[in-house]
């Protein structure tokens, strides 16, 4: 039983009504996520990768198809999501924000939970700011805090939606390393959305490439690097660059297709909906 995938996605489709027209964001998405795997998903913008993640996080429902997440332990919440946008609550202190997830998921077990929250705050370098409010923190600190809020719940599935996209390069590099260290230490199933191929290869065990809208899984590439990973030196290796280049070849086609569809939609000749239907 333990070889059963953590997440099973079969033929999932998602349609939105955009200005009274049906817009197909996802079509025939089929994907497995293995237990304790770090899966990265890349794709051109607007390909529906965020929609897919929101479905895994119970924020959207598929229009059709099967989406199954294996919930193993009632002691742990099924999923916790980290968003690209700023999502820490401005009306809570750092400490309250950090403990929010654990408290709300009903997995709070007194001092034991508090210890875990404190430990993660310490690791995120936020201990000294426990009583601060988010408006007193930098962007990087806020994103670390939302990481702590999600991770403190020990979710069976950690969902990250371009969490570092809004950060500057230095902060991004530091946070990537911290995330990898955390994951290597605590292990859980991670689905990580990004538009950066470097990021995907640095962090992931596998990288799934999505097609332009309507999105589907084009291919899944395994990343052979061993753990624990030292991101800085990995970045400079030839194998790393080869992988990134290969992925870019695959993705470029889709980006170009997405661009062409955008142009057509702008010209107003072809409805945005069915542009991928011919494939």
């Amino acid at each position: 039983m333990t070889t059963e995938p953590k997440v099973i996605v079969r033929d999932v489709e998602r349609t939105f009504d955009v200005r009274r027209r049906a817009f197909r964001a996802l079509e025939g998405v089929t994907l497995d996520v293995q237990r304790n795997e770090f899966l990265c998903i890349v794709g051109p913008s607007g390909c529906g990768k965020s929609t897919l993640l929101r479905m895994l996080g119970n924020l959207e429902k598929p229009s059709s198809g099967l989406l199954q997440i294996h919930h193993e332990s009632a002691q742990r919440p099924l999923s916790a999501m980290i968003f690209q946008e700023e999502s820490v609550f401005p009306w809570m202190t750092v400490a309250q924000n950090a403990a929010y997830g654990v408290k709300i998921t009903g997995t709070w077990r007194g001092p034991e939970s508090q210890r875990r929250v404190d430990e993660l705050l310490e690791k995120a370098g936020l201990s000294r700011f426990r009583d601060f409010y988010p408006h007193q923190l930098s962007g990087g600190m806020k994103q670390r805090l939302s990481l702590v809020r999600a991770w403190a719940t020990s979710p069976e599935l950690l969902l990250l939606d371009e969490p570092f996209a809004a950060l500057d390069e230095q902060n991004k590099a530091l946070l990537q390393q911290e995330l990898v260290k955390l994951w290597e230490e605590y292990r859980s199933t991670v689905v990580f959305i990004t538009h950066s191929l470097e990021e995907a290869v640095l962090l992931g065990d596998r990288v799934a490439v999505m097609t332009s809208a309507p999105g589907r899984i084009k291919e899944v590439v395994s990343v052979p690097f061993e753990r624990p990973r030292a991101l800085a030196s990995l970045r400079r290796s030839g194998e790393f660059n080869q992988l990134v280049t290969g992925l870019w070849e695959s993705l470029r086609e889709e980006v170009e297709r997405a661009r062409a569809a955008e142009l057509r939609a702008l010209a107003g000749r072809v409805p945005e909906t069915a542009s991928g239907g011919a494939r």
């Binding site: 929101r54 996080g57 119970n58 924020l59 919440p77 099924l78 999923s79 916790a80 999501m81 968003f83 999502s87 609550f89 929010y100 997830g101 709300i104 998921t105 009903g106 719940t153 969902l159």
Partner: peptide, 8 residues
Amino acid sequence: DVAKNLGA
């Protein structure tokens, strides 16, 4: 979204 995702 944060609250809903965490099952509030």
